[in-house]
């Protein structure tokens, strides 16, 4: 098989850091695909085609994970032995939960606004800023391996998941409103 002992960072020849140069990542991704993609093996034997298929699939998966800050953070935590996905995450940050409730209310109210699309646009910007705030926090927290920082990172990831879900719902509403015009 492909060298599955490598983690995604190693596959791309990058350090296992949350800090990542996205342009560099894209460049390496393209170079990797140029070498493993099934199109390079269209006239090859069945076995080579299979290996190419598996390799290209792995490269696509690794790229998708490393490209997205949330997934990258979750992946880094998994490399450090923590499961940052699913229902075992939580937060006790009351201020955050309050903010979420307010944002949700704001989302529901955009339909009644004078200019719903404009209100939505502003809301999307607000949520995006909150997400970027979490990304900035994670950048610092994930530089060390201290248990405390990892705990804090788990909480940050939970918040980001929350915010991303809200962002998706806002986008879906924007799509709905745009199609009605």
């Amino acid at each position: 098989m492909l060298d599955f002992t490598q983690n995604y960072f190693e596959l791309f020849g990058l350090p296992s850091d949350f800090r990542l140069d996205l342009d560099e990542l894209s460049l390496r991704y393209r170079d990797l695909q140029k070498v493993v993609h099934p199109d390079k093996f269209a006239s090859a034997s069945e076995h080579e085609k299979r290996v190419a298929m598996q390799s290209a699939t792995l490269v696509n998966e690794a790229y998708a994970v490393l490209k997205d800050p949330l997934k990258r953070a979750q992946y880094l935590l998994s490399l450090k032995g923590r499961n940052a996905e699913g229902e075992n995450l939580t937060t006790t940050d009351a201020a955050f939960l309050m903010q979420q409730m307010q944002l949700r209310e704001a989302l529901d109210e955009t339909r009644e606004a004078d200019d719903p699309l404009e209100a939505l646009d502003k809301l999307l910007d607000t949520i995006k800023a909150a997400i970027n705030e979490q990304i900035a926090k994670l950048t610092i927290l994930l530089e060390t391996s201290s248990q405390q920082d990892l705990d804090a990172a788990m909480e940050s990831i939970f918040k980001m998941q929350f915010l991303k879900k809200l962002y998706s719902e806002a986008e879906a509403l924007e799509a709905e409103l745009e199609d009605m015009i």
């Binding site: 020849g13 390496r28 070498v35 493993v36 290996v51 390799s55």
Partner: peptide, 11 residues
């Protein structure tokens, strides 16, 4: 396959 990948990244 492994060698091609390593070479691509080594570059």
């Amino acid at each position: 396959m492994n060698s091609s990948i390593q070479q691509a990244m080594a570059g």
